[in-house]
């Protein structure tokens, strides 16, 4: 069957869950609204507000040359521990059409702001520990010589490889006249025996309308943020290069509802033969204000 049709049919199974989720999202009272740019791969210097928990359900669909297309969902739990520190837990999974569905591991991420005030360029330090299998296909970053061929292996083979990795990022980000510009330099090290792998991600985004309107509206332009991101690998510490790896360009559109829920979609396009031809990422997120306060009150 044509891959896109198969993907559509498999997505139909999710319709009841999406309807229930959408009903919940539209019915809750207005509260927290996030201010983070809508990127999937790039990071900006905007952290989670202290005490807030943002729950995100993400997914990426990718076409695969010489193999089966796949869908790789992941859940994110992002918590603002301090004004200068955000911590995040990821649970990854994937479903390869014509193969199997499996949980592929977890990641624990921390982002720190070393400078406590806003500057033209704001640095952010990022440290992540990953405990995932070789079957992970979420493509939260592209590093080293990552390419679409890595995802062509059958799950039964790929899952045997266990990766314990530390990933670091230097994030530079600026806000100017409503635009956010973010540049990320990525370094990833397998704790076993492998060289450092490098990658990059850059993103730009802007709300469709800068000033807000007094009405509480769902479809007005102030609730939409448009942008684009570019990301790819940069080889390893033994061979630092932009060739032989994969690169992507991806426009993004986010729709922020007044009650704190955000829907984001991003079609991605491979820029060379090592890349997946097409990716489709989407996300539903919801921010719970004062989560930390509620948890702490349970222990008093």
């Amino acid at each position: 069957m044509f891959p896109a049709l198969r993907f559509l049919l498999s997505s139909l199974r999710l319709v009841p869950a999406v309807v229930v989720l959408a009903a919940g999202v539209f019915s809750v009272s207005p509260r927290m609204a996030a201010q983070e740019p809508p990127y999937f791969v790039a990071y900006s210097h905007h952290l989670e507000e202290p005490g807030n928990l943002e729950i995100e359900l993400n997914s990426v669909y990718a076409t695969q040359r010489g193999g089966h297309d796949f869908l790789a969902p992941w859940a994110e739990f992002e918590y603002g521990a301090k004004g200068w520190w955000t911590t995040e837990l990821y649970l990854d999974a994937q479903s390869t059409f014509g193969d199997s569905t499996l949980f592929t591991g977890f990641r624990w991420e921390n982002r720190f702001r070393p400078l406590l005030r806003e500057h033209w360029i704001n640095p952010l330090l990022y440290v992540e520990f990953e405990d995932i299998t070789g079957a992970d296909k979420t493509m939260k970053e592209v590093v080293g010589f990552d390419g679409q061929a890595d995802h062509a292996e059958p799950n039964a083979v790929a899952r045997r490889e266990h990766q314990h990795e530390v990933e670091t990022k230097l994030i530079l980000s600026s806000d100017f006249r409503g635009w956010n510009l973010s540049e990320n330099f990525i370094g990833e090290k397998n704790l076993g025996h492998a060289p450092w792998e490098f990658g990059y991600a850059v993103g730009a985004s802007r709300p469709l309308r800068l000033a807000a309107t007094p009405q509480r509206c769902h479809f007005c332009r102030e609730n939409f943020v448009a942008g684009a991101e570019f990301y790819g690998g940069l080889g390893t510490s033994w061979n630092f290069t932009a060739t032989g790896t994969s690169h992507y360009a991806a426009p993004i559109l986010a729709w922020q509802l007044p009650n704190g829920a955000t829907f984001t979609i991003s079609p991605g396009f491979g820029l060379n033969g090592n890349s997946h031809r097409f990716l489709l990422r989407w996300r539903v997120s919801y921010e719970i204000g004062g989560f930390g306060k509620k948890i702490r009150s349970l222990f008093r």
Partner: peptide
Amino acid sequence: NGNLAAGMPSWSGLPLGRRWQ
């Protein structure tokens, strides 16, 4: 800028017009 050390977040992600509002 907020006061990150004391828990007040930075709202620089909000466009200038919204902060003035």
